[in-house]
Design a binder for these strands. Structure first.
Ligand SMILES: [Mn+2]
Ligand SMILES: [Mn+2]
Ligand SMILES: [Zn+2]
Ligand SMILES: [Zn+2]
Lengths: 156, 156
DNA sequence: GCGCAAATGCTACTATGTTGCAAAACCATC
DNA sequence: GATGGTTTTGCAACATAGTAGCATTTGCGC
């Protein structure tokens, strides 16, 4: 933690400014604050749904932030590895990434089966009455609710 | 239903035999009884876990059943479309397929994070205390429990 | 058996993700 | 504010999983 603070001070002292939320998050994981990481986190933090690699790439391109396809993959993997982001394998072939605005990633998700959107349902955890067969060791439960999102539900 | 019965009688009358479980299942969906479909269903019905496309292909090959890669994809998709099988997108890049031995596919799954196995937990449904935000229409809940399976749990 | 719709086999193609390695960027230290 | 070691990036090639079009074969109602 002390070390993370020091990491942040270097760049910030030269810039004479406060760390952005994205920068703080990155530094808190002991990672270097780079253009791509900050931009990706900004995109994910601003999104109200999980985004695919392509959607994030488009968002970066729209901001004029040049980046390589592979770098984006690696950046997203890193965010997942350190626990800042979550990765969801959907029914389509694309994985979707998101960050929980508050704290660690322990919440359910809603998947719209019509438009494919995935949103985080923070504050909703399943009361799983688990009767696991013997020998299985439970680590965590992943709950995905399927149905229609507000925009898709209207046009029924 | 009458039609499905008739479909089955044709092939069976010439063979002078009873329909296998796989054949019944296929006919009940109004599909034609083909070598690949029967063999795939046999494999899935006999499996105690969900299988990837590759694993199923290997099983067919072991039985000497010749088939095309694409045909297997299409067969699996068909089984999922008619509701006989389920498709799970795991964290690795492969989808896994399985059939619930009994009835429709309304149960939780256990995913071993060490060996990647996925098993159906029939008879376990989440008591989801759902407080969905307004506008979301719930269709079904998908619950995946993560942890270590009996074989992987031993070597801790 | 006959004929037609459904299913298959082939080939080529797309989408998504990975690997290895040299160049560039970050940042702790001076 | 420069320096140097380490992390991160860019590039090019590769790998894997799935899809599309179309001619051929097969299942099955008759
Ligand atoms: Mn989430
Ligand atoms: Mn199942
Ligand atoms: Zn929707
Ligand atoms: Zn296991």
């Amino acid at each position: 933690m002390l070390q993370n603070h020091l990491q942040l001070t270097c760049k910030l002292m030269s810039d004479h400014r406060q760390p952005t939320p994205a920068e703080s998050l990155i530094a808190a994981q002991g990672g270097r604050i780079t253009r791509t990481r900050v931009a990706v986190l900004d995109v994910l933090l601003a999104a109200d749904q999980s985004l695919t690699h392509d959607e994030i790439a488009a968002a970066l391109a729209a901001q004029g932030i040049k980046h390589d396809r592979v770098t984006l993959y690696r950046t997203l993997d890193w965010l997942v590895d350190v626990g800042v982001a979550h990765k969801m394998a959907g029914d389509d072939r694309a994985r979707r990434f998101g960050v929980a605005a508050s704290g660690p990633h322990e919440h359910a998700h809603f998947h719209c089966d019509r438009c494919g959107k995935v949103v985080c349902l923070e504050g909703l955890q399943p009361a799983v009455a688990v009767n696991l067969p013997g020998g299985y060791q439970l680590d965590r439960a992943e709950l995905v609710l399927h149905g229609a999102c507000p925009s898709c539900g209207k046009d029924v």
